[in-house]
Simulated assay, not measured.
Amino acid sequence: MDSTRRRADAADNRARIIQAARAAIADADEIKLNGIAKQAGVGQGTLYRHFPTREDLLVEVYREDVGELVAAAPALLAEHDPLTALARWFDRVVEYARIKRGVFAAIEASVWRDLSAHSLGPIGDALTLLLDAGKGGGVIRSDADARDVILLLGYLTRLEQDEWDARARHLLDVILDGLRPRADLA
């Protein structure tokens, strides 16, 4: 097998491992690496070559999710009006927060502080892009900023698993309603 094919196979294996880990985080209370390797269709040696520790794998899942969330903001604005784009971005935040909740529960405190620092800047930038577009269109109140929304979104990580489906999207609707302009603030 030539080196280009080996690199492509390695990249495919890595992507399948991350996808299997993402599913395991969302669906299980305990994250077992042997189960992730099996679900990804790779051996444990392959998993450990890509991710020497459980934390390494969880960190990569988290980083990829942050990247996807950030990239979604301009793409959504290109397809939708600002308020709809923000609402659709919030839909993605629900899934991101479910993964984040699982990752933070599984990673040591010192590692999650580094992850938070990594994500708040890019997520804040993406959120500012969405909020500014809404402010420019008159559909987002002028006194709201990304930090306000990030603080409110942080409460998603406090939801218990058994109340997730009933409350997560409802809370985002409450946040979205609170971001709309009010006559008494105009």
Score class of each variant (00 low, 15 high):
residue 139 V to C: 12
residue 136 G to P: 05
residue 125 D to S: 13
residue 149 V to P: 00
residue 146 A to W: 07
residue 104 F to Y: 15
residue 155 Y to Q: 13
residue 134 G to K: 04
residue 106 A to V: 08
residue 139 V to P: 01
residue 110 S to I: 09
residue 134 G to Q: 05
residue 140 I to H: 01
residue 133 A to V: 08
residue 131 L to N: 02
residue 109 A to V: 12
residue 117 A to M: 08
residue 102 G to S: 07
residue 156 L to S: 06
residue 109 A to P: 14
residue 102 G to Q: 07
residue 137 G to H: 13
residue 152 L to K: 00
residue 119 S to C: 02
residue 150 I to H: 03
residue 116 S to C: 04
residue 98 R to H: 14
residue 157 T to H: 02
residue 101 R to I: 05
residue 101 R to L: 08
residue 151 L to R: 14
residue 147 R to Y: 09
residue 110 S to G: 10
residue 116 S to R: 13
residue 117 A to R: 12
residue 100 K to S: 15
residue 128 T to N: 12
residue 124 G to N: 10
residue 148 D to T: 13
residue 148 D to M: 09
residue 108 E to A: 15
residue 157 T to D: 06
residue 116 S to Q: 10
residue 103 V to K: 03
residue 149 V to G: 00
residue 143 D to E: 13
residue 139 V to D: 01
residue 106 A to N: 12
residue 144 A to F: 06
residue 146 A to L: 12
residue 151 L to T: 15
residue 111 V to N: 05
residue 117 A to D: 07
residue 108 E to V: 14
residue 146 A to E: 14
residue 145 D to E: 12
residue 128 T to Y: 03
residue 145 D to P: 07
residue 98 R to G: 03
residue 127 L to C: 05
residue 102 G to M: 07
residue 101 R to Y: 03
residue 128 T to E: 15
residue 104 F to H: 15
residue 109 A to N: 04
residue 119 S to P: 01
residue 119 S to N: 01
residue 137 G to K: 04
residue 149 V to E: 01
residue 152 L to T: 02
residue 157 T to S: 07
residue 103 V to P: 03
residue 120 L to I: 13
residue 117 A to L: 11
residue 129 L to H: 11
residue 115 L to A: 12
residue 156 L to G: 02
residue 120 L to G: 03
residue 98 R to T: 05
residue 137 G to A: 15
residue 150 I to T: 07
residue 114 D to M: 10
residue 115 L to D: 05
residue 98 R to C: 03
residue 110 S to P: 03
residue 157 T to V: 14
residue 133 A to E: 06
residue 116 S to I: 06
residue 145 D to F: 04
residue 132 D to G: 05
residue 115 L to H: 06
residue 112 W to P: 00
residue 134 G to H: 02
residue 126 A to K: 08
residue 155 Y to K: 05
residue 119 S to D: 07
residue 140 I to E: 00
residue 108 E to W: 10
residue 152 L to Y: 00
residue 124 G to M: 10
residue 151 L to P: 04
residue 130 L to G: 02
residue 124 G to W: 06
residue 113 R to L: 15
residue 121 G to H: 08
residue 148 D to C: 11
residue 100 K to I: 04
residue 126 A to C: 11
residue 136 G to C: 04
residue 154 G to L: 06
residue 105 A to W: 13
residue 123 I to M: 11
residue 102 G to N: 10
residue 101 R to F: 06
residue 114 D to H: 09
residue 103 V to Y: 07
residue 157 T to Y: 00
residue 134 G to E: 04
residue 129 L to Q: 15
residue 119 S to Q: 06
residue 143 D to C: 03
residue 133 A to M: 10
residue 112 W to G: 11
residue 106 A to D: 15
residue 144 A to K: 01
residue 110 S to W: 09
residue 115 L to I: 08
residue 156 L to D: 02
residue 113 R to P: 07
residue 147 R to S: 14
